[in-house]
Amino acid sequence: MTKVTMTVNGKSVSAEAEGRTLLVNYLREGLGLTGTHVGCDTSQCGACVVHVDGKAVKSCTVFAVDVAGSDVRTIEGMANADGSLGVVQQAFQDHHGLQCGFCTPGMVMSSAALLAENPRPTEAEIRHYLEGNICRCTGYHNIVKAVLAASGQDAGAMAAE
């Protein structure tokens, strides 16, 4: 076990980790940040997506020791400073982009990363980008709408009701 230090949601944190400890387990068990979820064991589902130095990363594919010193952002760090929902989070609530909530943290983190790269994505670009995030509840309709809305586009006009 070694002590691994990094910045998570703007705060410097440390916790013990084995060499084989994945970033997702470091966050969940080491830091108690259980908002990041584990939905599979093959890096397919995307429930564990976090940002590492600004890039969307599946935290189940990264060893904690490998990102020591990095700047990590999780779903717990996505709200505004006053505690209100951030733009992407609010769009997901407004457009019912979540049901059971389990894939949601990963969806929000991936969507935020997409919008950082591409502020006005098309529907097709959104669907392509979110291919690595599986949702079983929504049929993706309201997720795509939420991302369109978060980018300032008229989701209602683009998505049939």
Binding site: G35, I75, E76, L85, Q89, F92, Q93, L98, G101, T104
Partner: peptide, 13 residues
């Protein structure tokens, strides 16, 4: 709008 969303969207579920 769903009230449960707030906890799910902030990692507090």
């Amino acid at each position: 709008k769903r009230r449960e969303d707030v906890r799910f969207l902030t990692g507090r579920g």
